[in-house]
Design a protein around this nucleic acid. Structure first.
Length: 363
DNA sequence: TTCCTGCGCC
DNA sequence: GGCGCAGGAA
């Protein structure tokens, strides 16, 4: 097993990155501000999102909510609607909560240090370090996927980066490497270096300024590092959506906690252990909701639409059903279902699965 | 199709 | 340690 770094922190590492960065950096809007609110917005959006996908969302959020007060005052549905399509919707709910917390408990001013930032909901070690260094020049090293990869390769760290326990070694190393005089520039540089030069699959080792010092390159281990254990296989769930329609309305409900897509809207859901659900069963399910199915108005269900999440695969069939009469109020109270017109549905926050169904079915 | 990336909460 | 989302690359 190769030996990791055991000597004093090398000066060549920061020097090489700080030389590389201004020549290769992408021009991104959040790199032109030191406003902690804007930096926080960008970091929360970029937490599990690539720059290319997150950029339009960042521009939308800073335009729609120029200040933390604007974001705090917005209804949750509206914030989720703006977040729609980014995934990991708890990020949006936490972000909204934190905006309200900053307004109410911090007088509208973001906390001014790494340790204070850590107290905010949705702000973990990475985001706190990013904001503290970018906005306040605090000397605290960021540790994200890029940094793990760069450090593992350059210094030959073989710990499993998916295991929380291995975080210590990386953090310790990063903390020794970050220079006191340019912490923000260093953090930007190492992450950008990982994103552009030291990429996961095909790093540009040929033109890499760290080629001579890089442990992985010198030992032919670039493809082996970083070490990362694989996630366990996702389970499959079978969703039968009852798209209950009456007159010009469709019934939807806001999803509750402890399951995927919390806070987003979907249709009446009948989940089964298998993909099967006979047409006659649809009528029974609707009647169990107190609905009266209009004669001959049960359409063939859609083909199964597959949707993959982090730890689940969803196979969903949509059954459009026209009702003779509106659902009884007792059912609405019990299920959370409510009738919406097409224009209202457009405004509700929805998962990509539901959004795709609606656009393909022409509601 | 399959694989992979990406941070924080519980 | 388990789990949450979507999209792009292989």
């Amino acid at each position: 097993m190769p030996s990791p770094l055991t000597t004093a922190p090398p000066s060549w590492f920061a020097a090489a990155l700080l030389n590389w960065y201004p020549r290769h950096r992408r021009d991104l809007p959040w790199r032109h501000t030191r406003d902690p609110y804007a930096i926080w917005l960008s970091e929360v959006i970029l937490q599990q999102t690539r720059v290319k996908q997150g950029l339009p969302y960042y521009l939308d959020f800073v335009t729609t909510y120029p200040t933390v007060q604007d974001l705090a005052a917005a209804p949750q549905d509206e914030v989720l609607r703006h977040w729609q399509g980014l995934g990991y919707y708890s990020r949006a709910r936490n972000m909204h909560h934190t905006a309200q917390q900053v307004v109410q408990e911090y007088g509208g001013q973001f906390p001014g240090s790494y340790h204070e930032l850590l107290k905010l909901r949705g702000v973990g070690q990475y985001t706190a370090a990013a904001i503290a260094s970018f906005a306040y020049d605090e000397q605290v090293a960021v540790l994200d996927g890029n940094v793990f990869r760069v450090l593992a390769r350059v210094f030959g760290l073989t710990q499993d980066i998916a295991a929380p326990a291995s975080r210590k070694a990386f953090q310790q190393l990063a903390d020794t490497l970050i220079p006191a005089d340019q912490p923000a520039e260093f953090n930007q540089a190492i992450m950008e270096f990982g994103a552009i030069q030291c990429t996961p699959a095909k790093p540009d080792c040929l033109f890499c300024p760290l080629q001579q010092q890089c442990f992985a390159f010198q030992h032919g281990m670039v493809q082996e590092l970083p070490v990362k254990s694989k996630a366990k296989a996702a389970r499959t769930r079978y969703f039968h959506y009852l798209v209950l329609r009456h007159a010009d309305t469709v019934y939807l409900r806001k999803r509750g906690p402890k399951d995927i897509w919390e806070g987003l809207y979907d249709f009446a859901l009948h989940e089964t252990e298998s993909a099967e659900l006979q047409a006659v069963a649809v009528v029974e399910v609707v009647e169990s909701l107190g609905g009266r199915v209009a004669t001959d108005r049960v359409e063939e269900p859609t083909a199964a639409l597959r949707h993959v999440l982090s730890h689940q695969k969803v196979e969903a069939k949509f059954h459009a059903v026209w009702l003779e009469t509106p659902l009884p109020t007792a059912t609405l109270a019990a299920t959370g279902l409510a009738a919406y017109r097409a224009a209202e549905i457009e405004e509700l926050p929805k998962s990509i699965l539901i959004t795709n169904y609606i656009s393909n079915s022409g509601i």
